[in-house]
Every structure is written in structure tokens, then in C-alpha cells.
Design a protein around this nucleic acid. Structure first.
Length: 424
RNA sequence: GGAGAGAUGGCCGAGUGGUCUAAGGCGCACGCCUGGAGAGCGUGUAGUCGCCAAAAGUGGCUCGCGGGUUCGAAUCCCGCUCUCUCCGCCA
């Protein structure tokens, strides 16, 4: 969430910049500032009364030691009123604080200055494209038909075992998953990322830390017996490593990567969006996370984009990099680049990665800070993450784009990882 | 799942109702000493919300978390979480 400090100091700028995200913050910001002002006044009152009480208590101790019982008794009588007042103020303060917090949580992150205004996907900007779209034969099939033809993914069986959106990979289909995961992790490691294998369920604090809770709890699978959530992305556990942590400036950059299955309820999705591998309830993804010094986070973002681009190029897929407009960006992001690959049989662009800088928005919730040499107070760090990459849509594009009369030809880079070069 | 023990600062560890403003040690930083290093000596060593233009200073809060008792709680009471030991179960 945004810091109170920035709202206090740059009220108008906050309101203006949130308009880029089509968010009218005027009313909330005004109420926040009012509440904040009252809260501070009340705290002053409480602090001074508490100070009085502490002083009296101490003097009672001294009087009793000296044996002056009557004086001690007189002091004790004075405290009743003060205590009542403190109790009253502190109850009010609690209410104000939770009201204030409830409002703060509603404000989305400020978009970076370079983010274009816009309503939705139509206003996004294509930064660059790469690769070449293949020319497919007349009878080219979408990946769900190819998956059946070569018996590599069984959607019906997944349906039987669990339900829709839980495919079952088989034979070379399963091996291809493993190959892609290893390929991505190896590439990430070469780029300086440390590999993690985190828990797949997280507690409420972690869900709150990265922003999935309280608003998007309907998007996560919830294990009520133990009050845990299945992770929708490795971002949640891997970023929460640093919850309530104060780093040294010398610790930057922190670069972590993790492969995990991801679980998403995807309530409300339907139609061609969910056909085949296009949108699943369980899928595999390799994630990269960086914790950065605020002054370096945008360099890190570019570095991450370039890295993800190198992966897509090695897979020989036609792709485009898109800078999201304000209206299409997530609540928590300050700047996001999406990667899309072209699935030639569906003739659709499929999102395979989303690389974002959250600046201090997540860090504020996480209480993730760092200390600068010579600086007394800790400051919020910046967090970034991106997919590198999400598997199902990559597989969809690989199947569709590389279909030939002989079978599906894998890109060279995967041959050694998969142990085969053709699915037939 | 059953029984028991425990949670104190960066770390170890003392503290069972009132100079706890948390002893002592280790670590770290700085200074003195030294040709240099070490040893030794000295000083400092958290977070957070306020007040103050800011620094300095200063008030409140924080001894796992949340309540309670009391003029006063690290210390007493209740609830929760987590850790450890033993038993049971188990890939």
C-alpha cells in the first residue's frame, strides 16, 4: 500500500497519478488526511496522559519504599480519572487506526510516470516484436487437438480425477514440462538468480504481504481446516521470505527464482479463453523475484525484461512485449510489461509473462526495508517479479507453431533437456 | 494425535510486582594505544507512532501475539501461535 507520508506530502500528485489507473482517489485521500490529523491529535493527548500516569506510578513506588503510606494512597486516588480517560482515548484511537488502514488499503499503487492512460488492453503499447509467425498448412490444428492426436495431454482424464482446468500430462507431454522447467531454471541461474523451492501453501500474513489478501481471496484456493491458501504464484512465498526484514544496502540486488505449480480459481472465466491450455486452475510456472534498492529498480526491471525476452527467443517463438496502460495494470504494480507469444493455429496472442516493478507498494505491506550506510532510519525496498515463464501457453504455442506432417518439432534448445526432438 | 518444557535485544543469557531507563557476555562500529596488527582500555550499538521547519532533543509503545488484574507487569491470570523433548503414527 501507499505510505501515509506520500499522501500527506503529495496529495495532489497522488490523486492525479491515480487517474491514469482510472481511479478517483479524491474522496479517499481527503478522508485519509482528515483521519490522520485527528489521529495524531488524539495520540498527543493519550501520550501526555500516559506520561502523567507513569510518573505517578513511579512516585507511588518511591513513597511506599519510604513508608509514606498516606501520601501513596492519595496519589493512587488521582489515577482513577486518568486511567478512565486513557481507556476512552485509546479505544477511539484503535477505531481511527483501523478506519485509516481500511482506507489506505483501497488505494492502488501509483503508476510510473511513463505509463500511458487508457481503459483496457486496447490502449496498451507494443514495445517491440520478435520472431516470425509460421505459415501453417490448411489442416493445422489447435493445441487441444494436437494434444489428443499425439496423446501428450489428457484433459478429460484430468476432468475425471479433479475437474475442469486440471490437465493430465502424459509421456512426452510430461517430459516436455520437466524439460521446460529445467531449461528456465538453468537460464535464470545463469542470469544470477538463486533457486528456491518454497511451500505451496501460505498463511494469511503472507497472502496479505504480497497483496492477494484481503481483496482477492476469492481467486485463491483456501484450505479452511488449517487456514492456509494454495499459492496462485511463486511470487507469494518467494517475496514473503523478506517479510519483516531489514536488509543492508550492500545486500542488493537480491535475485531469486523458483519453480512451483500455481493454483487459481479463475472464477468468472469462460469461453474460448479457457479452451485447452489457455487458462487453467493448476499450471506450472517459473518465477523470478528481485528485491532492489529504490534507485536501481527500473534498471532491474529492464534487465528482467531483457532476460525473459532471451528465453522466448531461445524457444524460437514469435512474441511481442507490451507495456500496459494504466487501466490494464494490476492494483499493486507501478509499471508492467507483458510478454505474449503467438499461437498460430488459434491465431491468438497468449500472455506468457508479466514483469512488474511494485516499487515500495508491496514492501510497505511486507515491512521489507533496508538500511543505508550512515542513514539512521530504514527505508522501504523495492520489489519486482516476473514469470520466466508460465508453461501452459508456451506449450500451446510450441505445439501449434511447430506442427508438421512428421510431428511436432521441438526448438533446438530443448532437445537435450527433453531427450527427444520430435513429438510424433 | 497424547504428555511435558519453553519463547527476553543481531546472538547467548540473567531477571518471579516498583531506580528494568532489561544485568552480564559475544558480535559489530568508532576512538585511544601501536611502526602495523592483535591484545587491552573507552564509547556506542533496535524498531515504531507522535511533538519540533529540520537536526538536536523529547513523549508514547514494543521482552512470541492478543486480552485481563494492578497506582505500577518481562515478572501474576486467561486465550492463541510457534519451538523443543518423549511417546504414537508415517513417505
Amino acid at each position: 500500500m501507499l505510505t501515509l507520508a506520500i499522501i500527506r506530502e503529495k496529495k495532489e500528485e497522488v490523486i492525479q497519478r491515480l487517474k491514469v489507473k482510472n481511479f478517483n482517489a479524491e474522496e479517499i485521500v481527503t478522508r485519509i488526511l482528515e483521519l490522520d490529523k485527528t489521529r495524531r491529535l488524539m495520540q498527543q493527548k493519550q501520550d501526555s496522559r500516559q506520561n502523567e500516569l507513569n510518573t505517578i506510578s513511579k512516585s507511588i513506588g518511591l513513597l511506599l519504599r519510604k513508608g509514606q503510606k498516606d501520601e501513596a494512597e492519595a496519589s493512587r486516588r488521582k489515577t482513577t480519572e486518568i486511567k478512565e480517560e486513557i481507556k476512552k482515548i485509546s479505544d477511539q484511537l484503535d477505531t481511527f487506526e483501523s478506519d485509516l488502514n481500511a482506507l489506505l488499503i483501497q488505494l492502488p499503487n501509483l503508476p510510473h510516470h511513463s505509463v500511458p492512460a487508457g481503459r483496457g488492453a486496447g490502449d496498451n503499447i507494443t514495445v517491440r516484436e520478435g520472431g516470425t509467425k509460421p505459415t501453417l498448412a490448411e489442416n493445422a490444428m489447435p493445441h487441444w487437438d494436437l494434444a489428443r492426436k499425439y496423446d501428450v495431454i489428457d484433459f478429460e482424464l484430468g476432468n475425471k480425477i479433479t475437474g475442469a482446468g486440471f490437465p493430465l500430462y502424459k509421456g512426452k507431454g510430461a517430459k516436455l514440462q520437466r524439460a521446460l522447467i529445467n531449461f528456465f531454471l538453468d537460464e535464470n541461474q545463469k542470469a544470477g538468480y538463486t533457486e528456491y523451492m518454497p511451500p505451496l501453501m501460505v498463511n494469511q500474513d503472507s497472502g496479505y504481504g504480497t497483496g492477494q489478501l484481503p481483496d482477492k481471496d476469492g481467486q485463491m484456493y483456501y484450505v479452511g481446516t488449517d487456514n492456509y491458501y494454495l499459492i496462485p504464484t511463486a511470487e507469494v512465498p518467494v517475496t514473503n521470505i523478506y517479510r519483516d526484514v531489514i536488509l543492508n544496502a550492500a545486500d542488493f540486488p537480491i535475485k531469486n527464482t523458483a519453480y512451483t505449480p500455481c493454483f487459481r480459481r479463475e472464477a468468472g472465466s469462460y469461453g474460448k479463453d479457457v479452451r485447452g491450455l489457455n487458462r487453467l486452475h493448476q499450471f506450472d510456472k517459473v518465477e523470478i523475484v528481485q528485491i532492489q534498492h529504490p534507485g536501481k529498480s527500473y534498471d532491474a526491471l529492464e534487465e528482467m525484461v531483457n532476460h525473459v525476452e532471451s528465453l522466448v527467443r531461445k524457444l524460437e517463438l514469435p512474441y511481442r512485449i507490451i507495456k500496459l496502460c494504466g487501466g490494464d495494470m494490476s492494483f499493486t504494480s507501478a509499471l508492467t510489461y507483458d510478454f505474449e507469444v503467438y499461437a498460430a493455429a488459434q491465431k491468438r496472442w497468449l500472455e506468457v509473462s508479466s514483469v512488474s516493478n511494485f516499487e515500495s507498494f508491496q514492501a510497505n505491506r511486507l515491512k521489507l526495508r533496508y538500511k543505508e550506510e550512515g542513514n539512521k532510519k530504514p527505508a522501504l525496498a523495492h520489489t519486482l517479479n516476473g514469470s520466466s515463464l508460465a508453461l501452459p501457453r508456451i506449450v500451446a504455442a510450441l505445439l501449434e507453431n511447430n506442427q508438421t506432417a512428421e510431428g511436432i518439432k521441438l526448438p533446438v534448445v530443448l532437445h537435450s533437456y527433453a531427450g527427444f526432438d520430435l513429438i510424433s
